[in-house]
């Protein structure tokens, strides 16, 4: 148990420190790297409480894909040069009240959820149905997702699909004058179309592109 709590405190300490560093570090790219460190330590915490599937999905989706896109955007926008002077700049103090309101809201929400869970555990039937199966985390998650919550699951999938198609429609534009490679055209070219044999008179030459 001692080793368990040592690891727990180590990971949570790393998570909190890197979360602070995300906002406090001067270089934006460093912020993204701290965000990645935060994701990784949170997924370690997930694995420690026995939610190994969630932890791995967190690693694959957030660290492996979302954070890569973050990094891309931050690097391409060249905000690395703009110093993010959070503590020094006078303008940033304007945003502190908004930040405080949002963080208080999130804190209250978490208190309500955890308090309700502690006070009346029976109203959270996900919790009950999880304990029915004496199988691994992944199996029980699959059994719930694909039976009781299949509609919610499919609706969330549809929302993601719509969002994806929407993003493609918004950014896709057909530009004129772009040379595109057509594989069919290239392969189906015959010798007759490609080569022309001419009788060239001496000192006359051939005019190309007529």
């Amino acid at each position: 148990m001692i080793a368990h709590s040592i690891f727990f405190y180590a990971f949570s300490l790393i998570a909190i420190i890197s979360a602070i560093m995300v906002t406090a570090s001067k270089n934006t790219v460093h912020s993204v790297f701290f965000l990645i460190l935060d994701f990784i330590s949170i997924s370690c915490l997930f694995i420690m409480i026995g939610a190994e599937f969630l932890g791995m999905i967190m690693l694959i989706v957030y660290v492996g894909a979302v954070a890569v896109l973050f990094l891309f955007v931050v690097m391409m926008l060249n905000v690395a040069q703009q110093k993010n002077q959070w503590f020094a700049a006078k303008d940033s103090s304007k945003h502190i009240p908004i930040g405080l309101i949002i963080s208080t809201l999130i804190f209250v929400e978490i208190i309500i959820v955890i308090g309700g869970w502690k006070y009346k555990p029976e109203i959270f039937d996900i919790n009950n149905s999880l304990t029915q199966f004496s199988v691994s985390n992944t199996h029980s998650l699959g059994k719930i997702l694909y039976t009781d919550y299949i509609h919610v699951f499919q609706i969330s999938g549809m929302i993601l699909l719509v969002a994806m198609i929407g993003a493609i429609v918004l950014t896709f534009r057909q530009r004129a004058g772009v040379k595109r490679q057509s594989y069919i055209k290239q392969i189906s070219r015959e010798r007759v179309e490609g080569v022309e044999v001419l009788e060239v008179e001496t000192n006359k030459g051939v005019r190309i592109d007529d």
Partner: peptide
């Protein structure tokens, strides 16, 4: 999943 996660990192 672990293998996949590590290779995506």
């Amino acid at each position: 999943l672990y293998l996949f996660a590590v290779s995506s990192l």
